[in-house]
Design a protein around this nucleic acid. Structure first.
Length: 713
DNA sequence: GTTAGTTCTGTTTTT
DNA sequence: CAGAACTAAC
């Protein structure tokens, strides 16, 4: 039942906390929980929820679909629900919460732990789909066709492997790039089509090549004792289907399943959930169809739209009260999203004030846009006593970040770029990781190929090719072929010696690493032995770049050390898996600067002041998306996600001229701008001056002051 | 086997 | 324009 009194009390507390003028972007839930931890009991947590949230938390049996609009306390529902279940006597071991990203998992785990602190109860498992599956595979290894120490291939390794394969079977054609074929294969795998069931009736060349290559691809992966990301889930599903008793074991184990960001699940993940839920069907999924922006990656909106049909007796709960954004922002978002036809009807509301209008600003070009946004941030910081971290600049494509980075650097303002090239994707890191992978898994030809002549040790592609062929013919691993290089035809004695030496070295490191003692020290030694720093110095022409790359290597060694010190039973395999599955540096600390982030990765974040930039036709919606089925609607959802990140103030900017691929192009404003109601927006035409000091012309000066006046009022 | 010059191609991104 | 990938000449 509803508890009006306490609801009121709770929200006024939150409001107070949150709307202390320009307070930080803390989530109200977290802030409250940490702050009042000492006196809030579970009962009060429960009563502090609004009626819909309350119902979601206390409905513990059967299938439950929570349609949670942006900023409606979705994560809070999951965390409090977990705590509630435990409070009701459910063992923490019986509960599992599944997320997509490690970031989300970490955050959720942290919040649940906070909630449970008083009770000193063990926290339930919070895991991503992939790490959950990896764990299961590891435990049930003997039932799966994998050998010990198998390797997980990331996208680039997948690509490298496929390319080699294509060359081997003489199907490598430039017009059919490995990544395109890989995408096809991925689609097949995620539709549960095995190589044997492959439909060979395709007519176009790409289909023919895919049909031909897919079985080989899968065979090769197994030969290399490797799996790709899709396999992690598929192998578990296969395991469950072939071994009902094992499935039963996990069903008994995980009696309560919760899924976050359910709109992002693909068919395979959904199947896995169905299998795990079993007859009990204690499956609680939380998501927002309006925030589904990953369909290009296989996310299936059908999963959310069909949930009710698939699980008979599903209880559907809508969370429509928004605790994040002011009225005008919400209104703009609501109005925009109603232009989508395929969606579950819901409408966000707030009991908060309307707040300032959504400001739409036009600038002459991309550079002017950056100057305008940055100077606007400067002004707001001073006038509203805001911090750098209260601002976010959100763009459609990562290339946009550069303009803003340059401008922020020029003004010496701190900033953090979210996403982009990850630290572990750096070449030098991947090189070292390949060394570690081949040391761990001697069948991992892809890794050996990568480092065979890196640093240069005189083993050229011709010799490598011969060794590779030899390995293929004799059905031995490439590493073994290296060891016996002298027996291989066409490899000259000198080269053979070098190859054998490399193999020896790798094998000797294997025994050392396997002891699991001071692996960081071992790695440092390895780096030394192969002369990696010299290699970096010669590879990168300029000194400062080389120094930076060398620093990355040191950081990498440091992260291994960190791993060893913080892991209960550290192992080489464990570290490499962390690398593959949790692709983030250890210290992902918020540096407290202005946040630069793509629309996609802004999902789940919130900021008092948000600038969505480059809101032009062909950018949002992106020209490449509109041809695709439902592409426009997905782009609209993307815009919706961006808008709903803003708490207090939202700026939407576009430039009338933009440099694309080195040429200036005239642009037109995005159609989405017109889809927001006139009552909540304010248009400001504005040409940013090059620099405040450069303004000599009085007219421009006046104009600048006038518009700044409007903006700051 | 290595290196320097040339062509091509540009979303989004987690695991 | 800029980075990757590829080709042709040392």
């Amino acid at each position: 039942m509803q508890q009006p009194g306490s609801v009121r009390l709770f929200f006024s507390t939150v409001w107070h906390n949150r709307f202390r003028p320009w307070s930080s972007a803390d989530d109200p839930g977290t802030a409250l929980i940490t702050h009042y931890n000492h006196k809030w009991t579970m009962d009060r947590y429960i009563r502090s929820l609004n009626p819909a949230q309350h119902e979601a938390v206390t409905t513990t049996k059967g299938p439950l679909l929570v349609l949670a609009g942006a900023g409606s306390g979705k994560t809070r529902v999951i965390t409090v629900r977990a705590a509630y279940l435990i409070h009701k006597g459910v063992s923490p071991d019986s509960i599992i919460a599944v997320t997509f990203t490690n970031r989300a998992a970490r955050e959720m785990r942290g919040r649940i732990i906070t909630l449970l602190k008083r009770k000193k109860k063990k926290a339930p498992v919070v895991s991503t789909f992939h790490s959950l599956c990896l764990q299961i595979l590891r435990k049930e290894m003997k039932h799966v066709g994998l050998r010990k120490n198998f390797t997980i291939y990331d996208t680039s390794e997948q690509k490298a492997m496929l390319k080699n394969l294509l060359i081997d079977i003489r199907l490598y054609e430039k017009q059919f790039k490995p990544e395109v074929i890989l995408e096809r294969i991925g689609r097949l795998k995620n539709s549960f089509i095995t190589p044997e069931e492959m439909d060979n009736s395709g007519h176009d060349p790409l289909s023919i090549i895919t049909a031909r290559v897919y079985p080989e691809y899968q065979k090769t992966l197994r030969a290399l004792n490797a799996v790709d990301f899709d396999d992690l889930l598929l192998l578990v599903i296969e395991l469950f289907r072939e071994n009902p008793e094992i499935l039963e074991k996990y069903r008994e184990q995980y009696r309560y399943i919760m899924v976050d960001e359910y709109q992002d699940t693909n068919r395979v993940q959904y199947t896995l959930l169905k299998l795990l839920a079993g007859k009990r069907k204690n499956l609680c999924v939380v998501g927002d169809d309006d925030q589904s922006v990953y369909s290009w990656r296989g996310a299936n909106l059908g999963n959310i739209l069909d949930f009710e049909d698939d699980f008979k007796g599903t209880k559907v709960i809508r969370l429509e009260q928004n605790y994040r954004s002011m009225g005008n922002i919400l209104e703009a978002a609501n109005s925009l999203i109603t232009n989508n036809s395929k969606r579950m009807e819901k409408s966000l509301w707030t009991s908060d004030g309307t707040g300032p209008a959504v400001k739409i600003m036009k600038t002459i070009d991309g550079e002017g846009e950056a100057r305008l946004v940055v100077s606007k941030i400067e002004h707001l910081m001073n006038s509203r006593k805001l911090d750098y971290k209260d601002f976010a600049v959100i763009y459609r494509a990562n290339v946009f970040s550069r303009l803003f980075e340059e401008e922020l650097r020029r003004k010496r303002m701190p900033y953090t770029v979210v996403g982009g090239t990850s630290y572990f994707d750096r070449k030098e890191i991947k090189d070292l990781a390949s060394y570690m992978k081949i040391i761990l898994n001697k069948y991992d030809d892809v890794s050996l190929l990568r480092i065979a002549n890196l640093p240069r040790r005189g083993i050229g592609i011709t010799s490598i090719g011969r060794l590779h062929d030899h390995a293929g013919k004799n059905k031995i691993s490439l590493l073994d072929a290296f060891s016996k290089a002298s027996e291989v035809e066409g490899v000259n004695a000198k080269t053979a010696l070098k190859a054998a030496a490399l193999a020896d070295m790798l094998k000797s490191y294997r025994s050392v690493f396997m002891k699991g003692k001071d692996m960081a020290g071992m790695l440092a030694e390895l780096v030394d032995e192969i002369g990696f720093y010299d290699h970096i110095r010669s590879f990168y022409k300029t000194d400062d770049v080389a120094v930076k790359r060398a620093d990355n290597v040191k950081t990498f060694i440091g992260s291994l050390k960190y791993y060893e010190e913080n892991e209960k039973s550290p192992s080489l395999q464990g570290f490499i898996e962390t690398l593959a599955l949790d692709n983030r540096p250890e210290k992902e600390e918020e540096q407290g600067g202005v946040t630069l982030v793509s629309l996609h990765s802004s999902k789940g974040l919130e900021f008092p002041v948000v600038f969505i930039v480059g809101v032009e036709d062909d950018t949002i919606p992106h020209s490449k998306s509109i041809d695709e089925d439902g592409g426009l609607e997905e782009e609209r959802r993307l815009m919706y996600v961006g808008i709903t990140r803003a708490m207090k103030e939202l700026f939407i900017t576009y430039a009338s001229c933009r440099t694309k691929y080195g040429t200036k192009t005239l642009t037109i404003p995005s159609q989405f701008i017109g889809e927001m109601p006139e009552e909540v927006v304010e248009h400001i035409g504005f040409e940013a001056p090059a620099e405040e000091d450069d303004i000599k012309d009085v007219d421009i000066r006046d104009d600048y002051d006038r518009i700044m006046g409007i903006l700051n009022s």
